[in-house]
């Protein structure tokens, strides 16, 4: 995934070995196997989508191993009963700032780590990277108490503290994602030829200008890939939003899943429709920006 991010700007992917085979029986067997495996992986999703279009009364009588009873009602009902409009909006106003701030701070940190060397370079990187891996449950109570006693203006939070605010959830997400993004970006930035900075420095460009006008534009590829990944991760985040937000009407869509279950615990078709609605944004991002994902995989990961 990160391979692309280590590609020096301007280099192209290494040549892949030409391994064209004539389709023999082994190759056909391989395709059959891979096709079956792919269908196996897709099946749970397909099943959810399929059932989301089916009428509960119909499946209740005929069982799920049947055909028929198609309807769109589940979506309309799930949307209204689950208050999806509100929860999608909450997800949006958590995800977008969290990703932007994470990328900005990570770029800053990565820039300094890669551009200058000082004694604690590696230590700092380790501190960031390790933070990414700690179990969040272990940090819950202190964070909870900190947020509760952190006073913020009332226009930011109706409670006057960071608790039960989207701001708090954004802050935790940023802190947790920083390690990974910093690491990736600093690795990428290190591949930027030193000479570019040297000539900029000779021209009298300040550090700020070097960062904004040289580094960031060159980092477009990893930033795009990271943005794509981060959007899905923050959108999918479940634990922090669940424990730090207390009003049901502030939950982002992923955390509101549990509330939904209480709403329609036995109507699995409705549940499917709700699940499909929730996965729609990430699937959309995935398919629209698959290039970012796939590029990350395949682009010139070979050395040289």
């Amino acid at each position: 995934m990160t391979a692309v991010l280590e590609t020096p700007p301007g280099t192209t992917g290494g040549s892949l070995l030409p391994t064209k085979h004539r389709p023999g029986p082994r190759r056909i067997l391989l395709h059959v196997f891979l096709a079956l495996a792919s269908l196996g992986f897709l099946f749970p999703l397909v099943w959810a989508v399929l059932n989301s279009f089916r009428d509960y009364e119909y499946t209740a009588i005929h069982g799920y191993v049947s055909f028929g009873g198609f309807t769109l009602d589940n979506y309309a009902e799930a949307w209204v009963r689950g208050d999806f409009g509100l929860h999608f909006w909450n997800s949006l106003i958590i995800t977008v700032p969290a990703v932007l701030i994470t990328l900005l701070l990570a770029s800053c940190m990565g820039f300094v780590l890669s551009r200058f060397s000082f004694r604690f370079n590696t230590t700092l990187l380790a501190v960031f990277l390790a933070a990414n891996l700690l179990p969040p449950q272990a940090l819950l109570i202190p964070i909870y108490r900190m947020f509760r006693s952190a006073e913020v203006p009332y226009w930011l939070s109706d409670s006057g503290t960071l608790l039960n605010t989207h701001l708090g959830v954004i802050a935790v997400n940023v802190a947790f994602q920083l390690g990974f993004c910093t690491f990736v970006l600093s690795n990428y930035m290190r591949t930027i030829p030193r000479e570019i900075y040297e000539s900029a420095r000779v021209d009298g460009a300040s550090v700020t200008r070097q960062f904004l006008q040289l580094t960031l534009p060159l980092c477009r590829p990893p930033l795009a890939a990271l943005a794509t990944l981060q959007v899905t991760w923050v959108y999918n985040e479940f634990f922090w939003a669940t424990v730090l937000l207390q009003s049901g009407d502030k939950y982002p869509i992923t955390s509101s899943l549990n509330n939904l279950r209480g709403e329609y615990f036995t109507d699995y078709n409705l549940l499917s429709a709700g699940s499909v609605l929730i996965m729609l944004p990430v699937l959309l991002i995935f398919f629209l920006l698959q290039r970012q994902f796939v590029a990350g995989l395949t682009l010139g990961a070979t050395k040289g």
Binding site: A37, S38, L39, F41, L42, P44, L45, T232, Y235, N236, E237, F238, T254, S255, L257, N258, S275, I278, M279, V282, L283, I285, F286, Q290, F293
Partner: peptide, 13 residues
């Protein structure tokens, strides 16, 4: 794509 697709979904989902 098929095998990677589940990776983009949340564990809760």
């Amino acid at each position: 794509t098929a095998i990677y697709l589940p990776v983009v979904l949340s564990l809760a989902l």
